[in-house]
């Protein structure tokens, strides 16, 4: 399986080359185009209950699509819904990533996806909701973001502070606490930052350069109210 990011920047697309018989899981609706040798199947990853819990809990799509090169080698083109960068990670079987619910675009066959409940303060205040995806296994993982992706590398015990709605994915070896952005509550909210996540290494944190919630709030003021 070979992959390549086309048109890097705000409106990228991924091209994945599949050998005969190989398949890739993708977010449902992510396929843009494919060779005629590739079949699209929709599959409830993790069985019916797994899919249901993922749908209900993380808001992820109920079905993932499986793109299988069943009649010979071929390629598929995949793209996310929102404008923003795509990153490709190669998982080694030991590293696991927590991915916020909109971050997953595609994964190779060896990738395992499960939904996982966060603890109360992270779920309530972290900005990703109570449920996130835990992705492990071995192979290629494709993530997408809103805006550009920035990679933060943390050495053991090194700390870094991230605004809570800018998270895309972070390694399972990192840990984080939710904190006020400034020392007082009033200052925290008047500064426009509110709550932040204090990450502690070792591990990698991927963040997105735009905040989907803020963008939504900004664009809402231009939408005529119908009801």
């Amino acid at each position: 399986m070979k992959s390549e990011i086309l048109y890097p920047g705000a409106f990228p697309m991924v091209r994945v080359e599949l050998a005969s018989g190989e398949h890739i899981k993708a977010e449902s609706g992510a396929m843009v185009g494919s060779s005629p040798t590739v079949d699209v199947e929709s599959k409830m990853e993790g069985g019916f209950l797994g899919a249901l819990s993922r749908k209900l809990l993380t808001g992820e799509k109920f079905f993932f699509q499986t793109l299988r090169a069943s009649r010979g080698p071929g390629e598929v083109l995949l793209a996310p819904t929102v404008p923003g960068e795509i990153v490709i990670l190669e998982l080694d079987g030991v590293n696991e990533y927590m991915v916020q619910k909109d971050g997953f675009l595609a994964g190779a066959e060896g990738i395992n996806i499960e939904s996982k409940m966060q603890n109360l303060s992270r779920g309530l205040l972290g900005g990703e909701g109570f449920f996130i995806l835990k992705i492990g296994g071995k192979g290629m993982l494709v993530l997408n973001s809103f805006g550009a992706v920035h990679k933060i590398e943390l050495k053991p015990d090194q700390e870094y502070i991230v605004d809570n709605s800018h998270l895309v994915a972070w390694s399972a070896t990192t840990s984080y606490n939710i904190e006020k952005a400034a020392s007082g509550w009033v200052a925290s909210f008047t500064s426009g930052e509110g709550l932040v996540c204090r990450f502690r290494g070792p591990g990698i944190v991927y963040i997105q350069s735009r905040n989907p919630g803020s963008f939504g709030a900004w664009i809402r003021q231009f939408i005529p109210v119908s009801e």
Partner: peptide, 19 residues
């Protein structure tokens, strides 16, 4: 033997070296 742990250190990758 497939790796079963991650090792971190100053000159090792930030995502950890599988070992």
């Amino acid at each position: 033997d497939s790796p079963n742990a991650l090792c971190f250190g100053e000159e090792l990758p930030a995502s950890g070296a599988p070992c």
